[in-house]
Design a protein around this nucleic acid. Structure first.
Length: 354
DNA sequence: ACCTGTCAAGTCTGG
DNA sequence: CCAGACTTGACAGGT
């Protein structure tokens, strides 16, 4: 089983490369020249996109095949007070350049809209903002010219004291999204509300792939289910509804999208399942993310699924970002050298297990 | 150079 | 019904 590692948003090793510089609305409103202020926002976004490209270059030269884009590329992009502002046209070239680099380097990219995007909500204005937020993310993918293997990952959301009702409300509100958005979505199990088993059931009904977060599962698993026992079902969500499924069903644009990509995992027609991994910060804060990732629990999970899984992509969600990724690779290399015959180092950020 | 309170946004808990 | 916690990176304003 091929295992590829990636990291989230920013690097702790690259200097002055923040992809998420911002301007707060409070500060924006202090500026008297609105035109000038909007131009400032565009300038910040351009800088964020240039830094994103440096981060992608860092990935490419470190063999990192997986990267999560920050949701904060354009400051105040979906703010209500800026509803009449269209930043996309002015940034089209910058997004196109990033997208071209992504396609050429074959890096698998995603977004993870933050916890304000929640489709289980009973509140109309929260739903409205959630839709707006997803449209914004998909718009950025489209400006980058990336096909539907570039996905947005969200959680099911809050339960409001009645998980059953909240789950049904999620399905009806999420299901009302435009197909072009739904086709780019994945759902992740939560560390407090919807468990992995519940998220899997909802993912199947919604017709989208599921991302398994093994740390969230460890801290939100009241039924005590072993994660590998859910794996067949999770893996099937990628085969049934994901990129492969789209193509098998002959969904619109499939053939055309295939030709638009090149290199590595982008060209072989396979989108491996994705999992998230992090390590509890401490016994008192088990849900928090530690600086680095402990190899052992991850390795035993990977060994458990290796027999039934050709490839899996692992997103590292550690506080020390890319440094944690490299340290984990060091640990895997050391384990292989110490005699673990089922671990083979493939390159700077991937291993073969089993 | 470094520190602290604040930031556009949501939900949950406890009072 | 409302305040505070939760959580993340970065700004803003202070020393």
């Amino acid at each position: 089983m091929l295992v590829r590692f990636g990291f989230v948003a920013m690097s702790v090793l690259l200097e002055n490369a923040s992809p998420s510089r911002t301007m707060t609305y409070t500060n924006f409103s202090k500026l008297t020249d609105r035109e000038g202020a909007l131009l400032r926002l565009v300038r910040i976004a351009q800088e964020n996109l240039q830094h994103t490209q440096r981060l992608l270059s860092h990935c490419k030269y470190s063999d990192i095949h997986l990267y999560r884009l920050t949701s904060k590329l354009i400051p105040l992009a979906t703010h209500d007070a800026l509803a009449d502002w269209d930043p996309y046209a002015m940034l089209a070239d910058d997004f196109a350049a990033v997208g071209a680099y992504v396609r050429e380097s074959g890096i698998r990219v995603s977004f993870h809209p933050d916890h304000f995007t929640v489709f289980s909500t009973p509140r109309p204005e929260v739903l409205r903002n959630s839709i707006k937020d997803l449209r914004h993310h998909v718009r950025m993918f489209e400006l980058m010219g990336l096909d539907e293997r570039a996905t947005c990952n969200i959680h099911v959301g809050g339960t409001y004291g009645d998980k059953e009702t909240a789950g049904r409300r999620f399905l009806s509100q999420f299901g009302a999204l435009e197909p072009r958005i739904v086709r780019r979505m994945t759902l992740e199990n939560d560390d407090k509300t919807f468990t992995a088993a519940e998220t899997l059931a909802i993912s199947r009904e919604a017709g989208v792939p599921m991302v398994l977060d093994i740390h969230h599962h460890a801290v939100n698993n009241p039924a005590g289910i072993a994660p590998e026992s859910l794996w067949d079902g999770i893996q099937r969500t990628w085969a049934d509804f994901g990129w492969n499924g789209l193509r098998r069903d002959g969904a619109e644009g499939g053939a055309e999208l295939r030709g638009a990509s090149s290199g590595g995992a982008w060209s072989d027609g396979v989108l491996p399942p994705k999992i998230h991994v992090s390590t509890p910060k401490s016994a008192t804060d088990p849900r928090g993310h530690a600086d680095h990732v402990a190899m052992e629990p991850l390795l035993s999970f990977l060994r458990a699924i290796a027999g039934s899984t050709p490839a899996v992509d692992v997103m590292i969600e550690a506080k020390r970002k890319d440094e944690a990724l490299f340290r984990l690779m060091d640990d895997l290399r050391a384990a292989a050298e110490a005699g673990a015959a089922d671990i083979r180092i493939m390159d700077g950020a991937s291993v073969e297990i089993g």
